[in-house]
Write a protein that binds this DNA or RNA. Structure first.
Lengths: 232, 232
DNA sequence: GCAAAAGTGTTGGCGGTACACCCATGT
DNA sequence: ACATGGGTGTACCGCCAACACTTTTGC
């Protein structure tokens, strides 16, 4: 930043965003991947992403690419880390601002499969080897998700608007990879008074149907501004 | 990432790194700032930083700029966040990968003051208004430091190699902005068995001199690989 | 001997964990 | 009626917070 016409003096890397997309379904954490149609890494699975436009910031770019390549919009998205190794892209110098998104799978299950590009949800236990340094990006995204879910109420972003406590517990158990005591889990969650009871239960199951709740985002916002901390 | 000759199709932003530099001295958290010698923001204080070279990644760039502009090297440094708003730099489209560094002030007190550029340590309570979006970057760096110090042993990076427990406690109290009980603090820290006792005390003070300790980095590394968690 | 800061153990309360039985529903 | 999973309360233990006196040193 030492000159006015720096633009002529400094070669510039290309800048892209990539987005790790998490979903949750049938007791499994899932990832939405896209099969690359061109070289490099043609036929290899990768995270959706693309080049930053001059009139958007990286958040906007990540959301735009997410929508263009998968039809997903209006979801939780957060910057993860910036990857800048010199040889991370065989085409040349590309630095990538990586994001991760949490998707209510029920809302977007269908579109992703229909997409022109072959997008596909993979169970986290069956992720193929990925293009570029995306294996590394995935590892970081998983770590972030696992630690963040413990002290921020982001788990709800992976469930439908209305969900049951067994579903929520199942989500936590899956992501944290450990069993939780049902009574203690309910107690902890309900004590926050952040769940709205819909006075309505799951129907058509051969046992007592679980009650539906939803997460009170506004209340959480108010409380967290006053120093309240969500912790599981 | 849809074509091979993308480099001709996509305009590229400039990429820089900036580094928030924390120090600790005399019971105060401090920041090393540089007064800008040229427009824009001539005469305004800012974090050291500069343009990414084609043969280095952003970590290397941050360390290089840190050394070139302040003489500081071989310190703790970590990526903070990438700032990419369209108008964050009046000269044009510049995205910045921000870092923060923790410096043992005793090692670098002198050089920084001598530097050709006017670099100066500011107490955190007396930070002037900064250039670009550096006020925002600072806020994020402070939040990161405050939360990270609670669950990672990074506080030691701000003290001399040998330090006393009262010094360490003072550091925590300053950063967390709350008083801690001396006995409980000592207990918690010593229970980790991560401090090496140097069997040596502060001399020349008109009271009992505190014992010197140092942090056992290797032991911490071993333990944390086995799942040990440092928490204050 | 006095001032100033370092060093040292114990107790009570709270929160987290462990644990077993009854309830509702569909077949 | 039976199988399946949902919902509920209590007791114990461990951890954290609160707290006061003794020790060392320089002047």
């Amino acid at each position: 930043m030492e000159t006015n016409n720096y633009c002529y003096e400094y070669p510039r890397p290309s800048v892209t965003t990539d987005c790790v997309i998490f979903g949750f379904d049938a007791g499994e954490l899932k990832l939405l991947l896209i099969e690359r149609g061109i070289e490099p890494f043609k036929g290899i699975w990768a995270f959706p992403g693309g080049f930053l436009n001059m009139e958007e910031n990286s958040d906007e770019c990540a959301r735009r690419e997410l929508f263009e390549e998968t039809g997903i919009e209006n979801v939780f998205i957060e910057q993860l880390y910036t990857f800048s190794d010199v040889n991370r892209d065989p085409r040349g110098r590309v630095i990538t601002v990586a994001y991760y998104a949490l998707v209510k799978l029920s809302d977007f299950k269908i579109q992703a499969g229909d997409d022109a590009q072959s997008a596909k949800w993979f169970p986290i236990s069956q992720i193929p080897s990925l293009a570029f340094d995306h294996n590394l990006i995935l590892r970081m995204a998983l770590n972030r998700l696992r630690s963040k879910i413990r002290y921020q109420p982001i788990g709800f972003e992976l469930l439908s608007e209305k969900f049951t406590l067994p579903e929520l517990q199942n989500l936590y158990e899956t992501i944290l990879e450990k069993q939780l005591d049902r009574r203690n889990f309910r107690k902890k969650i309900l004590e926050t008074h952040l769940l709205i009871d819909h006075q309505e239960s799951v129907k058509g199951v051969p046992h007592k149907g679980a009650k539906y709740f939803s997460f009170d985002k506004n209340k959480y916002k108010t409380l967290s501004e006053r120093g309240f901390n969500f912790e599981i």
